[in-house]
Amino acid sequence: MTQSAIYALAAALAIALSTMFPALGQGKAAKAALESIARQPSAAKDIRSTLLLSLALMEALTIYGLLIAFMLMGKID
């Protein structure tokens, strides 16, 4: 493998892995939130803002992966 190929592979792995696992976590969080809204619709407002906050915190991990992928892509000639 050439140097560029390794960089390309690393970039692909960085974004793929950092998308997969936070997505699983976000799915779990959304599932739990939906279930609790269905059980108690009056608490929907509180749950929604907390859900948004936790989703954003998980999303940050994906964004870090994305940034690393962009950085690695810059190194491919």
């Binding site: 964004i63 994305l66 940034l67 962009f70």
Partner: peptide
């Protein structure tokens, strides 16, 4: 720092 990185990453990612 994570606040800054999150905002930057999102907007920069979208633009790209």
């Amino acid at each position: 720092a994570s606040l800054a990185l999150r905002l930057f990453g999102n907007i920069f990612g979208e633009e790209t």
